[in-house]
Amino acid sequence: MIELVIDKRIRDLGGGFEVGRVLPFARRRMVGPFVFFDQMGPLDLAPGFSKEWDVRPHPHIGLATVTYLYSGALTHRDSLGVHQEIRPGEVNWMVAGSGITHSERLEYARANGALMHGIQAWVALPLEAEETAPAFYHHEGADLPEWQDKGLSGRLIAGRADGLVARVPTHSPLFYQHLDMEPGARHAVTGEYPERAVYIASGRAEVAGQVLAAGQMAVLAAGGGVDVTALARSTVMVLGGDPVGERFLFWNFVSSSRERLEQAKEDWRQQRMKLPVGDDLEFIALPTQ
């Protein structure tokens, strides 16, 4: 059963680079530990476009980010010294914890042109891990279990579901799946987590008997089996997990404590947070709201 349908809303990240924001939403701030969910593209970029479209160095606390691409490429640099090219079908899980800064540059697309399409999600860390040491993990291939069914190709991006386990190090019970579905293909959403959602990244699908178009997320009611049936060739993301409690957000900061958010704001204002290694020439001022 569907509890709520959320339509993506267009947001400008700066310089004209727009994304479709799904979470947080006024009537549903989180699904399990997932506190943020953006769709990038699909956007066809010709070589030589402006550097204003890059995601410049910025900070995070209290969360893990997961950048997942269907096509294109991103260049990640962070304050730990990690320099990683992010490619389709790979998982890049960055644990902010007590604080990290990073950038995501469109270097490949600027040089070669690319169809940019993917998802960035934020996962709130549980209370005991909110101030853990920052870390970055890159996973591909056998680390991410795949399966095939009639007209369906699936990949487990993180967590545990349907008897499969991804090797991405998570901090609370969750699951995150990528499905490519041909018309008529069907997938039964796992019922082992109290909070679940289905997002249609492209195509059209029936979820629990209701038709959803690209850019819509169905938040599912707790308990009970739910089927997803593709009505066209579709890319579908299925996600959820155990709730971790209320979280407060400001800009790129997530915390269970409003006071911790104020501390993070001041740390960034006073430039006390180390910028990404090899990408430390730009500083974005703290937003006013």
Rank of each mutant, 00 (worst) to 15 (best):
G20Q: 07
A158E: 01
E140R: 13
V165W: 04
A205I: 08
V236I: 15
E140F: 14
H60Y: 04
I284M: 12
R29L: 12
L63H: 05
A129N: 15
A129Q: 15
V165Y: 04
E246W: 10
V95Q: 03
H138D: 12
V219S: 00
D78A: 06
K8A: 07
R160Q: 13
L275S: 09
P173G: 07
A264H: 07
G225A: 15
E262M: 10
L144N: 01
V82Y: 15
G163V: 00
I2F: 01
Q120D: 06
Y193I: 09
Q148G: 06
V244Q: 08
G223T: 14
N112V: 11
V277N: 05
H187R: 07
T288Q: 13
V207L: 01
F136Q: 12
A158K: 00
L286D: 09
G159N: 01
L281M: 12
L23Y: 07
R155D: 00
H187Q: 09
L80N: 06
G191I: 01
T67R: 03
L249V: 13
L156A: 04
E104L: 03
A222K: 06
H60S: 06
S79K: 05
E282C: 00
G209K: 00
F283Y: 15
A214G: 14
G15C: 09
G278W: 07
E104D: 09
G240C: 07
S257Q: 11
A285W: 14
T288M: 12
M237H: 11
F36I: 06
P145Y: 04
Y193G: 08
G118R: 01
V277S: 09
A109L: 04
L164Q: 12
S255H: 05
L249E: 11
V244P: 02
Q84D: 12
A213G: 12
A121M: 13
A197S: 13
W147T: 05
T67P: 04
Y68R: 02
P126W: 14
V5A: 03
I86Q: 02
V238K: 08
L164V: 13
T75F: 14
A142D: 15
A124S: 15
G48F: 03
S172T: 13
H60L: 04
L69Y: 08
L231V: 14
L152P: 03
Y137E: 10
H83E: 15
L275E: 08
P276A: 09
R11S: 09
H76F: 09
Y176E: 05
S257P: 04
I119H: 08
H139A: 11
T101C: 13
D149R: 06
D149N: 05
A114F: 08
H102W: 02
N252I: 11
L43S: 07
G62C: 07
K265G: 03
I157A: 01
H83V: 15
G97E: 04
A264K: 03
Y176P: 02
G72R: 02
Y70M: 10
V236P: 07
V219A: 02
V219T: 02
A285Q: 15
D7T: 13
A64I: 12
R56Y: 13
G97M: 02
E146C: 13
W251K: 01
P33D: 08
W53N: 08
P287I: 02
